[in-house]
Each structure stands twice: as structure tokens, then as C-alpha cells.
Amino acid sequence: MKDSHVADDVTRAAVELFATQGYANTSVQQIVAAAGVTKGAMYHYFESKDDLLFGIYDRLLSLQKSHLDEIIARGGATDEVLRAVCVDVLETSIDDISAGTVFFRSMHMLSAPRQQEVTRRRRSYHDQFAALIVRGQADGLYRDDIPVVMIVAHFFSDVHYLSHWYSPEGPEDQTLIAEQITDLFLSSIRSKDDPA
């Protein structure tokens, strides 16, 4: 477990550098200089730059998956559960917008086994998300004339696009943005027969 301040400092520096100048253009020397540590200290926690890049994904994926599991475990009406999941994934993505920027620009630069692991974990999350939609379709809440895979892609395209337009310095409150995007999404999949 990487619980040291050194690991946190290195990760923060790497996220910032990868987000601003790209993974390929960032050297280990730049990362350790920005973190204020030695290469030896960095290599105590991360085996390589690839390990560091994977660590950024691992942290975000683990956080979002644990939140998803907690929200689903609480139970409740399908629409309320799906709404809570949507708001959460948007808020956590906004909270760590730089990591999201790195995620979508640099994932293809991970080693093949690490890419497969990230893909597997994202698919697992999407499968649970899709199961909520299927449940809502069975309850007559959501339209069933569009394939579930397309509905899932529709929502996550908004999540993936956040890093292209959202600015933490902007006037928009992140919770309000998360709720507005969620409302737009849920309205778009609502069954025409559902009175809500």
C-alpha cells in the first residue's frame, strides 16, 4: 500500500505534469524535481513511470467503484440509485479533473497488461451501471428502444468529455454541474410511458 507522503507528492506532481505536457513528454527527473524527492525515493514506491501512470488510474477507478458498490448496497428505487451513481461519478471525475485528463489522453501508453487491467475494471463498472438501466427498463422507467450499450456510452461520453471543457476556476459549482448533466441524461432515457 502506497500510504507515504512521498508517494502522494510524486503522484500529485506526475498528474500535474502528465496533464499539462503529456505522459510521453514528461521525464522521471521532472517528476521527482516537481515532487521535491530523489529518484531513489520515487522508485521505493513506484517501479517505473508506467507503474506511476497505472497508479493514477488505480486510485480513481478504486474510488469510483467503492462509491458505486456503496450506493447500490444502500438500495432504494432504481431511478434514485441510478441518479446517485451518475452524480457520484461526475463529482468524483470533477474532483480529480487532472487525473481524468491523464486517463483519457494517456491510457494507450500503458503497458499491454496494465491496459487490459484498466479495461477490465472499467467494463466491470459499466456492467453494474448497465444492470441498473436494465432494471429500470424492466420497471418501465427507461426506454427500451435503444440498446443498453448505447445508453451507457451516451452517459460516459459526457464524463469523458469533462476534462475538455470544465475548469475548476470557472463559475460553475461541481455539484450543480453533476446534477444538471445527470438530469439531462435521465430525461433522455426516460420511457415515454413513464409519468415522472
Rank of each mutant, 00 (worst) to 15 (best):
K2F: 13
V6T: 11
V6D: 02
D8E: 11
E16G: 12
Y23C: 02
S27Y: 03
V28I: 11
V28N: 00
Q30N: 15
A33P: 04
A35I: 08
V37G: 03
K39W: 04
G40N: 01
G40V: 03
H44E: 01
H44T: 03
H44F: 05
Y45Q: 12
S48I: 06
K49T: 07
K49N: 07
D50S: 09
D51E: 08
L52E: 00
F54G: 00
F54V: 01
Y57G: 03
Y57A: 06
Y57L: 09
K65T: 14
S66L: 07
H67N: 08
H67C: 10
L68W: 03
D79V: 14
V81E: 03
D88A: 10
D88G: 02
D88H: 04
D88W: 01
L90Q: 05
L90T: 09
E91K: 07
I94H: 00
I94S: 02
D95R: 09
A99W: 01
G100Y: 01
T101L: 06
T101A: 05
F103A: 08
F104P: 01
R105W: 01
M107S: 11
M107H: 12
H108K: 02
M109F: 05
L110W: 02
A112G: 00
V118T: 04
T119W: 06
T119M: 14
R121V: 10
R122T: 13
R123E: 15
S124E: 14
S124V: 15
H126D: 11
Q128D: 14
Q128R: 15
L132F: 10
V134C: 08
V134Y: 05
A138R: 09
A138T: 13
D139Q: 10
D144N: 13
I146Y: 06
I146D: 02
P147T: 11
V152Q: 04
H160M: 11
S163F: 14
S163G: 10
Y166H: 15
P168K: 15
P168F: 09
P168C: 09
E169G: 09
E172G: 13
D173A: 13
Q174E: 10
T175S: 12
T175E: 15
I177A: 09
A178Y: 03
Q180A: 14
Q180N: 15
I181E: 01
I181A: 04
T182A: 06
T182F: 05
T182Q: 04
L186M: 15
I189T: 07
S191V: 09
S191P: 10
D194P: 01
A196C: 10
